[in-house]
Amino acid sequence: MGDLFENYDIIGAFWVTIQLSVLGAVGALVIGTIVAVMRVSPVGVLRILGAGYVNIFRNTPLTLLMFFSVAGMAFILGLTLSENLSTNAYRWAVIALSVYHAGFVAEALRSGVNTIPAGQAEAARAIGLTFGQSMREVLLPQAFRGAIAPLGSTLIALIKNTTVAAVILGTTKPEAAGMLQVVTENEGASLATFGLFAIGFVVLTLPIGVLFTRLSQKMAVKR
């Protein structure tokens, strides 16, 4: 097992996984928030655009987005993000992760809005709060609290889905799944190796699960 770490940069592979997760999460949060706002807006056209985004990207396999980004966008449409092939694939992987998970983030935020009983909005208006005040003081705090748990599961799904980047990253700078493939092909199958990689993901996702569960319980709105 010691040799494994010497011969293969497993730590480096997990570092790529972490980088993809963080960058993808930031991108997904930004795009997802915009889509969520469009989806709950009072303007019909914006709602349709938001719903269209969610329905298209949530129903497309992430693998397809990854392939399309490199084979379609970069090679044929010429939208390369870097001269270096591996850097180009890496950047497109981040974009594909962001675009794909933004749909899930938008739905998580919207489900947060859905947890608010209508009486809350009505009460806010009844005591004379303006639109801005009722948003700031009454509705948005409750919406964000209700969205914590689904956002947590989206983040965990995103960390696991960074492995899909293996289909375009190649073996020069692989993330965890690509590295497992290299190791398995060279060294043969070993449950210990698989266990090592699996535990790597448990270590990455378990604390986040615990943290978000705690947070959502602590922040839960008593009703």
Binding site: I156, K160, A189, F194, F197, A198
Partner: peptide, 14 residues
Amino acid sequence: SVPVLLMMIFLFFG
């Protein structure tokens, strides 16, 4: 908590 692709790669190539 283990990614599907990780299992697929291990099962197939292993």
